[in-house]
Amino acid sequence: MRSKQDTDINSVDWQPFYVTLKLAVATTGLLIVLAAPLAYFLAYARFPGKSLIEALVNLPLALPPTVIGFYLVVFMGPKGAAGRVWEAVTGGSLLFTFLGIVVASTLYSLPFAVQPLKAAFQRIDRRLMESAYVLGLSRVATFLRVIIPNSASGIAAAAILVFLHCMGAFGVLLMVGGSLPGETKVASIAIYEAVEAMKYREAGLMSLCFIPISYAFLLLVNRLNRGA
């Protein structure tokens, strides 16, 4: 027999969705800013060992999320390099905090930003760049004034892919952030816990929210890629 709590939509805790949204927005913003110069560098630079760096950037695609999570826990923990530096600067821990899951999510989603950005930058006609150089623009100015404005659809596609990937992240976030309500408990973890607690209707309602959002965003990505 279903309890009232199990059937009432108002009883569903929507806070994890707010945390998810916050995480996805923060990660997407951070990643686009960080990944754009990296993608530009990988798109145009020629140097020995470039394929090694490209493989390293793509490593999160090939590794199980728990493996990434494990190394991040070690790295960000009290004995890890990042954890020690963070503790020396702020006096607090990076693990089990919202900032911690933003860092984890950023590293985990890196290839989802770099690959589409790199493809978008490579689509730019090289002669436009040469024209900018001849007109006196430095490489950085060319990137900001020519490459970025002409890669708008590619950047939007990359942002959407990162956003969707962040919304679905689970294993890495659980290991690095745990499940602190309002802080690190994201929607995917809330669904998992609802199933564990046999609150299937609550889990179903939360899961259902993901489908139209993800579907609409993927349609948008397809549209952007067609227009590019």
Partner: peptide, 20 residues
């Protein structure tokens, strides 16, 4: 000397105006 420092005017064979 890089092209930026040669201060040239260059009109290319193909259209290279910035589309944006």
């Amino acid at each position: 000397l890089p092209p930026q420092k040669r201060r040239l005017g260059y009109v290319f064979q193909e259209y290279t105006l910035f589309p944006h």
